[in-house]
Design a protein around this nucleic acid. Structure first.
Length: 495
RNA sequence: GGUCCUGUGGCCGAGUGGCUAGGCAAAGCUCUGCAAAAGCUUCUACAGCAGUUCGAAUCUGCUCGGGACCUCCA
C-alpha cells in the first residue's frame, strides 16, 4: 500500500515517492530556544515524531533533521532590530549561550517526557554560521541579493519575476508589496518585501559574527536553508513545520535554496495545524500560553488539574494533524480517561492466552476484527489519519475485554487473529504512536509487596472481613494503585 | 482591507455524495459483599437559506458565526 501525504506545496494528497528508494530525508523546523516550550510546541514535534516513526515502520531509512534556532531572530522593538536571544539574555542576566543552553535543555526534557524519538541530527544555527555565509555569498553571486551598510537582503522582485514566489502560502507578490509592515532597515531595502539574509549588528549586540559584510548575525530563514542543504542535500523529501511558518519562513527558504542550489528544496511540504485555546491560537501576543511545565504540574489558571505528557500526546493523536485542535481542561480530561481505558484493554490483550484453534468459532466477529486491524495501515497511509485508528482500537477494546470477562468465547477468534491483534496494538500504540505507560509490573519489589497485599485481602474477604479488604483497596487507591476484583475471583492492579 | 481555512449531537472530535465513526459526559440494566472496572442498551447531530442530484453533513451560491496568515510565531 502506498503512503499518501498531503503536500502543502501542491495542495493535494500525493503518493510518497522518496528521491532515493528506501530512504527518506525529513527536515523539521525546530524551536527558538529563547524561552520555555509551551503546549503549542507539542503539536509539531509529536506530529513529526509519529510521521518519523511511521516512515521507519514502512521500512524507510529516515534521516530526521530538526534544528535548534539559537541565533538571529529579528524582532521589532521600537525601531531597532533586535536579536531575540540577546534581548532575553540581558533580561535574565545570562550569557547568551547560557540562556540558549538552559532552554535547549528544557526542550529536550519536554521531548523526553513526550517520548519523542531524538532526531538523527540536531544542528544549531550558531554552529552553522560558516555555511550560512557561504550560502549568502552564492546568492549574491547569482545576482539575487545585495549588500547595504553591512546587511544583505534578498532581491524578491527579481526572484518573483522568474519564479513562483508565494506558491506555498498562496500569496500574490503584488499584495505583499502593499501589506508588508515597516521593519527596521526598510529604507535601505530595494523593495519593502525583501527579507534579510544577513543583518549588520549594532554595537550593543552581543551575538555577532564576522562576515564579508562586517560583523553581524544571520537572518532567520537562511539558517534552515543552510542546515537542510548541508545534511539532506539540495533536494530532499519532506520539509515540515507548523502552518504558521508557511509564510514568510518557508516561502523564503524556497526562494533562497532555489537560487543557491538551482533546485526547489523539498519534494513534500507537510504542515501541522495549530493548537488553539478558547478558539484563539496560543501565542505570546495573545497572553494565553500554557508552558509544558505548567501543563504537567497543573499549575495554571486554565487548568483544573495536572495532565501527563501521555495524555497530551494522546489528545493530539485523537485529531488529524491538519485540523486545528481546541484545548480545554475538559477535552484533556476526556482524553485522559479514554487513554486509560484503551491502555487497560491493551494490558489485558497482552496477557490473553493464544489458543491453537485455526478456525474462528465466531466467523463474523473474526472477520470484523481482521478488517479493523487491517485498516490501521490503510488509515495511516492516508495522510496519517491517527484519529481513525484510535476509533478502531476503541471498537476492538470491548472485544478484548469481552474475551477476558468470558462474554466472548476464547475460541471466537482464530489464533492467528489474536496474534495479529496483539501485534497491531503493540506496533501502533507503542512503536508508531509512541505511547508509554509504566504499570509497575517490571518492578520486582513492588510486585512482591502487591502480591502480599492481595493475599491478605483475599483471606480477609474469605473471612468476610470487609473492613480490612476495603481498607487495603482504599489505601492503595490514595497512592495511585488501583486494585480490581476480577470475575474469576482473582485480583489485578495497575498504577 | 487582502488571501485562505472552518462551523458536526451536552463537550471533544472522524467523515468517502447513499451504508451506526469514536471518545468523554449522562441514563438504565448485568456482574459484584460493596465499589471500581468491564459488558449490554439508550441519547442519531451535521450553522441558516436556496440550488444541483433519484439521493448531500459531504458539491454550488448566498447569509451569519469562528479562526489562521498577511509581523516574531509550532
Amino acid at each position: 500500500m502506498p503512503l499518501k501525504v498531503y503536500n502543502s506545496y501542491t495542495r493535494t494528497k500525493e503518493v510518497f515517492t522518496p528521491i532515493t528508494p528506501g530512504h527518506a530525508g525529513m527536515y523539521v523546523c525546530g524551536p527558538t530556544v529563547s524561552g520555555e516550550s509551551h503546549l503549542g510546541h507539542a503539536r509539531p514535534y509529536i506530529t513529526f515524531d509519529f510521521i518519523y516513526r511511521y516512515l521507519t515502520y514502512k521500512g524507510y531509512k529516515v534521516r530526521y533533521v530538526r534544528n535548534i534556532t539559537d541565533a538571529g531572530h529579528f524582532e521589532e522593538e521600537g525601531k531597532e532590530a533586535e536579536d531575540k536571544v540577546s534581548k532575553k539574555a540581558i533580561l535574565e542576566k545570562l550569557e547568551p549561550m547560557e540562556l540558549v543552553q538552559k532552554y535547549t535543555n528544557l526542550f529536550h526534557w519536554a521531548m523526553l517526557q513526550f517520548n519523542c524519538v531524538e532526531p538523527s541530527i540536531e544542528p544549531t544555527a550558531t554552529g552553522h554560521i560558516v555555511e550560512q555565509i557561504s550560502m549568502i555569498e552564492k546568492i549574491i553571486a547569482e545576482g539575487y541579493a545585495y549588500e547595504v551598510n553591512g546587511s544583505v537582503y534578498f532581491d524578491l522582485k527579481k526572484y518573483a519575476a522568474t519564479h513562483d514566489y508565494g506558491k506555498l502560502s498562496g500569496r500574490v507578490m503584488d499584495d505583499l508589496l502593499e501589506t508588508t509592515r515597516e521593519l527596521d532597515g526598510q529604507q535601505e531595502k530595494r523593495d519593502k518585501a525583501d527579507f534579510a539574509l544577513w543583518k549588520s549588528a549594532a554595537l550593543e549586540h552581543i551575538m555577532r559574527w564576522k562576515s564579508p559584510w562586517g560583523e553581524g548575525f544571520p537572518g532567520w530563514h537562511i539558517e534552515c536553508s543552510a542546515m537542510a542543504t548541508k545534511y539532506l542535500g539540495a533536494e530532499f523529501d519532506i520539509h515540515g513545520g507548523g502552518m504558521d511558518l508557511q509564510f514568510p519562513h518557508h516561502e523564503s527558504e524556497i526562494a533562497q535554496s532555489t537560487i543557491c542550489n538551482h533546485h526547489t528544496p523539498a519534494k513534500y511540504w507537510i504542515h501541522n495545524n495549530m493548537i488553539t485555546i478558547n478558539g484563539k491560537k496560543m501565542g505570546k501576543s495573545y497572553n494565553n500560553v500554557i508552558k509544558l511545565t505548567e501543563m504537567f504540574s497543573g499549575n495554571h489558571p486554565l487548568l483544573t488539574q495536572a495532565f501527563s505528557p501521555m495524555t497530551v500526546r494522546f489528545f493530539i493523536l485523537q485529531s488529524h494533524y491538519r485540523s486545528p485542535v481546541d484545548f480545554s481542561s475538559e477535552a484533556l480530561l476526556a482524553s485522559e480517561k479514554a487513554l486509560k481505558r484503551l491502555w487497560e484493554a491493551y494490558e489485558v490483550l497482552k496477557k490473553l492466552p493464544v489458543g491453537l484453534n485455526e478456525e474462528a468459532a465466531d466467523a463474523a466477529l473474526n472477520s470484523k476484527v481482521v478488517q479493523w486491524l487491517n485498516e490501521f495501515d490503510e488509515f495511516m497511509d492516508d495522510d496519517f489519519s491517527t484519529a481513525k485508528i484510535l476509533a478502531n482500537m476503541f471498537e476492538l477494546a470491548p472485544v478484548i475485554n469481552g474475551i477476558k470477562d468470558g462474554h466472548i468465547a476464547p475460541g471466537a477468534l482464530a489464533a492467528t487473529t489474536l496474534v495479529l491483534l496483539q501485534q497491531q496494538f503493540k506496533t501502533y500504540l507503542e512503536d508508531i504512536f509512541g505511547l508509554t505507560h509504566t504499570t509497575g509490573a517490571d518492578d520486582n519489589t513492588l510486585q512482591g509487596v502487591m502480591q502480599l497485599l492481595i493475599d491478605i485481602r483475599k483471606e480477609a474477604k474469605i473471612r468476610k472481613d470487609y473492613s480490612t479488604s476495603d481498607k487495603i483497596r482504599k489505601q492503595l487507591a490514595t497512592i495511585g494503585i488501583e486494585l480490581k476484583d476480577e470475575k474469576d475471583g482473582s485480583m489485578s492492579w495497575n498504577k
